[in-house]
Amino acid sequence: MFRTPVIFLCACALLSGCASQNPYDQSAPSNNRTATYGGLGALAGAAAGALINHDNRGKGALIGAAVVGAAGAGYGYYADKQEAELRRSMEGTGVEVQRQGDVIQLIMPGNITFATDSAEIASSFYTPLNNLANSFRQYNQNDIEVVGHTDSTGAHAYNMALSQRRAQSVVTYLQAQGVDATRLSSRGMGPDQPVASNATADGRAQNRRVEVTLRPSQGVQ
C-alpha cells in the first residue's frame, strides 16, 4: 500500500524550504532558484524513490528526496553549504568570507599571514590554513586560486616576486595538508590591486593580504 502520508510530509517540508533564502544574501535571486529547483527536484525524487522501493515506499521516498533534491539544486546549493561551514570555521580568526554568486572569496589580512618582507607562514596563520584545508578536503567541487598582494612600499618587481612567493607558500602548505594539488593555483599581484590608499599606514596594512578564491571546477554546475 502506497504510504501517502510520508510523501505528503516530504512535499510540505520541501515546499516550505523553497521559500527560504541564503542567510548571507537575502536579496540574491540565484538563491531563490536554488531553493526552488532543489525543492522541486526533491519532490520528483520522493515520488521516484517510492516507486522504486516497493518493500518500503516511505523509506524510498525519503532517500529519493534527499539524493535528487541535492542534485537538482546544483552548485548553488553546494556553495551555500560550503559558505556556511567556512564562516563558522573562520569566525574569530580575522579572515573575512565574501560571496558573489557561485564564487566564494576569503580575505586574509597581512597582520595574521606573513611577517614583513617574509614569505614564511606566520604562527597566527596556521589555524586559519588548517581550517581551510579541512574544508577543502570535504568540499572538493571547486578550484582554489591563492593570490598574494603587497603595499606599494619598495620596488615594484620585488613586491611582485614577494607576493608570488607568499601565495605559493599557502598553496604548498595546503597541499601538505592533503588538498588535491590539481585544484590549486597561485598568483602574485604585488601592489597592483590595492583595496585602500597606500598613503597611510592603515591603508598599506589593508593592501598587504592574501586572497583565496573558490570557483566551480570545470564541468560542475
Rank of each mutant, 00 (worst) to 15 (best):
I104P: 05
G94A: 00
F114Y: 09
V95A: 10
D117S: 15
S123M: 01
I107A: 10
I112R: 00
V103E: 01
V97E: 07
S118L: 05
G92L: 05
P109A: 13
M90C: 14
V95T: 14
A119P: 02
S89W: 11
F114S: 12
T116P: 02
S123D: 12
Q98L: 10
V103D: 07
S123F: 02
F125K: 11
P109V: 13
T116L: 09
Q98N: 13
A119G: 07
V103Q: 04
G92V: 03
I121F: 12
E120R: 00
I112M: 01
G101Q: 12
M108S: 11
I112C: 06
T116R: 14
F114K: 07
G110Y: 04
I112S: 06
F114C: 03
D117N: 13
G94D: 04
I107C: 10
V95W: 01
D117T: 15
M108H: 08
S118E: 11
Q105V: 05
Q105N: 07
D102I: 01
G94R: 06
T93N: 08
D117G: 14
P109I: 09
L106I: 02
Q98S: 14
G92M: 08
G94C: 01
E96G: 02
I112H: 03
G101N: 12
F114T: 05
A115D: 10
S124Q: 06
A115Y: 00
F125W: 06
S89D: 14
S89I: 11
S123Y: 04
T113R: 02
V103R: 00
T93E: 02
I121P: 02
S89V: 12
V97Y: 06
V95C: 14
A115H: 05
G101C: 04
T116Y: 09
S118H: 04
L106W: 01
S89R: 15
V95K: 04
D117W: 08
I104F: 03
I112K: 01
A122F: 01
Q98Y: 09
T113M: 13
P109M: 14
D117M: 14
E96V: 05
G94E: 03
T116C: 02
N111S: 14
F125C: 12
D117A: 12
S118F: 06
A115L: 07
I121Q: 13
L106T: 08
F114E: 04
Q100E: 12
S123K: 12
I107E: 03
D102C: 07
V103L: 02
I112E: 05
T93M: 03
L106G: 05
G92T: 04
V103T: 10
P109K: 13
Q100Y: 04
A122N: 13
V97Q: 02
G110F: 04
A119L: 07
P109Q: 15
S118G: 09
V103F: 02
R99K: 13
Q100M: 08
M90L: 07
D102L: 14
E91W: 03
T113H: 01
P109C: 13
I104K: 03
A122Y: 05
V95F: 03
S124D: 10
M90R: 08
E96L: 01
Q98W: 08
P109E: 11
A115V: 04
